[in-house]
């Protein structure tokens, strides 16, 4: 688990957390996380409830500080640049590192506008119709909605809404897409579609996904990080490896208990 120090844009690691600690006020939620995220791979973060999976994920695009008011120690490198350097613009960070949330949250606007808005605010100058179509095709939603682009995004089913949210994230052409339990609010068929979609997307994007569904992590991801809370109730990554090793031959006893269902 030793990695070479990445060079700008050349390292195989897009994102890398080093000695990362995250605080809510005085409460330390996450401590000492080292986590590399490889380019064009899917990295899953698993672990029991309350172990700080989502907190860690949201630290990757500086979403935490907006709503929770968190403080951070250590660093997260994105293409070799520290995301938490005082000179870094969080808006710029979220532009490069997109996010899909646990509950589908389309804007109460038309399907078309849901996708076009993000591109527009980032000064997209090309053909908007083509961009919308392209994003909807990439998120495997085009055939279902091509005749009703003017309809409200809220009129879609839950699974469709979530794919619309993915399309919306694609429209600003991010490098990384963070997914916070993207299928937890969906039925099994919709979940399967999202998983297939992720396999499709990883050709062009790097994906980090938080999930509490172990089968999902085993099926869909290339790497898996196992998180657990320590004695001080702070979450940390206890094991990180290729997914099949985590699930077949974990080194840590706690990981083994968790993935075989003996946890708790």
């Amino acid at each position: 688990m030793t990695q070479p120090i990445p060079q700008n844009g050349t390292s195989k690691f897009v994102l890398e957390a080093r000695s990362l600690g995250i605080y809510y006020g005085n409460f330390r939620a996450v401590i000492g996380v080292h986590l590399p995220v490889e380019r064009n791979k899917i990295t899953a973060i698993i672990g029991p409830s309350g172990c700080g999976k989502s907190t860690l994920l949201r630290a990757f695009n500086r979403m935490n500080e907006l709503f929770a008011g968190t403080r951070i120690e250590g660093e997260i490198n994105f293409e070799g640049q520290n995301l938490y350097d005082p000179s870094v613009d969080p808006v710029e960070v979220r532009y490069r590192i997109g996010m899909v949330f646990q509950k589908p949250n389309p804007f109460p606007k038309s399907i078309y506008e849901n996708i076009a808005w993000g591109a527009r605010i980032h000064g997209f100058k090309g053909n908007m119709d083509d961009l919308v179509e392209s994003c909807l095709r990439q998120s495997a939603l085009w055939d279902e909605v091509k005749d009703k682009l003017k309809q409200s995004g809220l009129a879609l089913s839950g699974g469709q809404q979530q794919r619309l949210c993915i399309a919306r994230a694609l429209a600003v052409q991010p490098e990384v897409i963070l997914m916070d339990e993207p299928a937890s609010a969906l039925d099994p068929i919709a979940t399967l579609k999202i998983e297939e979609l992720m396999q499709e997307l990883k050709k062009n994007y790097t994906i980090v996904i938080v999930t509490h569904n172990m089968q999902q992590a085993a099926r869909a991801s290339d790497y898996t990080a196992m998180m657990m809370i320590n004695d001080e109730r702070a979450g940390t990554v206890i094991e990180f490896d290729e997914t099949n090793r985590i699930f077949t031959n974990p080194k840590d006893k706690r990981t083994e208990d968790y993935v075989t269902g003996r946890f708790g």
């Binding site: 907006l66 710029e92 919306r168």
Partner: peptide, 9 residues
Amino acid sequence: RKASYGIGA
């Protein structure tokens, strides 16, 4: 708001 910030608004 999260959705909007999430795409870099």
